[in-house]
């Protein structure tokens, strides 16, 4: 049911499709742990076209493809490619489409992945577009909850940080609408609060949520805390960034106030919003979350390319 599909926004997916993906990811994880090499995508080529910086997304897609026996081509940085000569996105995508079986794109502009999908014949996977969507991150986030807690639905979830400009936070919040939480706390300084269209969507779907400014007041009530970085690069005004920078920091002592088995996620990279002293605690799931990027993306590539 995912064969040939573009992966543009998490909201394009049904819960049953994500369940299928997670089952496949379990198999991939098992194969990875067993050290078994797979040849599922032997002969397939993936193109990665990252017009914005990336560490995990790009490398985990490339690793996923290699682990499945496929190969990849990577669009060189701007100064070394034809884009420096002024080539537009449509032409770049057309070229990649003629070389590869699937294209993974990240772009500064919102809607770039959807546009690329219209231009390309082959499936396009969105690796992040502006402040909008990061569907594969949301898939990994949900998968991590499933591994950590055995379920995704009915949890008490807090999403902390830059809910205005962060595409990972936005995608995670929208992904949760498929697995309604018992309660969703949207925790942010007022300048970084969730955008209206996302809140309207939560209202439409009857999701119970509360907008709060301080983590301390709700931490005891959480099963899951999703921490995000302030998206400095997306602020229209650098002065606005200076006003909110450092406005929240998650430390071990704050988390220890919670008597519950709290799972802390972070899409990474982190700057200073998540203290290093959390890393060694039982709450820290974010490195495992990052490692699940490979099996989940393996599963997705397999389903998109072969069904």
């Amino acid at each position: 049911m995912l064969k040939g599909r573009d992966v543009i926004s998490i909201t394009d997916f049904k819960r049953s499709e994500l369940e299928r993906l997670f089952e496949e990811a379990d198999l991939m994880l098992e194969a990875l742990r067993g050290g078994r090499g797979l040849r599922t995508l032997e002969g397939y080529v993936m193109a990665t076209a990252f017009f914005e910086p990336s560490t995990r997304t790009k490398l985990s897609f490339q690793t996923a493809m290699l682990r499945l026996g496929g190969s990849y081509i990577d669009l060189p940085p701007e100064h070394a490619s034809s884009r420096a000569k002024g080539e537009n996105l449509a032409d770049t995508i057309r070229m990649l489409d003629s070389y590869a079986d699937v294209i993974v794109i990240r772009h500064r502009l919102e809607g770039a992945a959807r546009f690329a999908a219209e231009v390309a014949e082959h499936p396009v996977i969105n690796g992040g577009d502006g402040t909008r969507d990061h569907p594969t991150q949301a898939m990994i986030d949900l998968y991590t909850l499933r591994r950590a807690l055995g379920r995704i639905q009915g949890l008490r979830v807090g999403v902390l940080g830059d809910l205005r400009y962060g595409r990972a936070a936005r995608s995670f919040i929208l992904a949760l609408t498929l697995y309604p939480p018992e309660i969703l706390y949207l925790i942010s300084p007022p300048q970084l609060s969730c955008r209206r269209e996302v809140l309207e969507r939560l209202d439409e779907l009857g999701i119970t949520y509360r907008q709060v400014e301080s983590l301390e007041r709700v931490v005891e009530d959480l099963d899951v805390l999703y921490v995000t970085r302030i998206q400095r690069e997306r602020f229209p005004d650098p002065l606005e960034y200076e006003k909110v920078r450092g406005s929240y920091v998650v430390t071990r002592s704050v988390l220890e106030k919670s008597g519950r088995e709290l799972v802390v996620l972070h899409p990474l990279p982190r700057v200073d919003e998540l203290s290093l002293d959390v890393d060694a605690t039982r709450y820290a799931w974010y490195f495992r979350q990052a490692s699940y990027g490979v099996p989940v993306r393996m599963a997705l590539l397999k389903l998109v390319l072969r069904g």
């Binding site: 537009n88 996105l89 449509a90 502009l109 809607g111 770039a112 959807r114 546009f115 577009d129 502006g130």
Partner: peptide
């Protein structure tokens, strides 16, 4: 209305 929308890029066939 979003200046960062791909549809506002003058050099794209969109």
């Amino acid at each position: 209305a979003n200046p960062n929308c791909i549809s506002n890029q003058p050099r794209e066939p969109i």
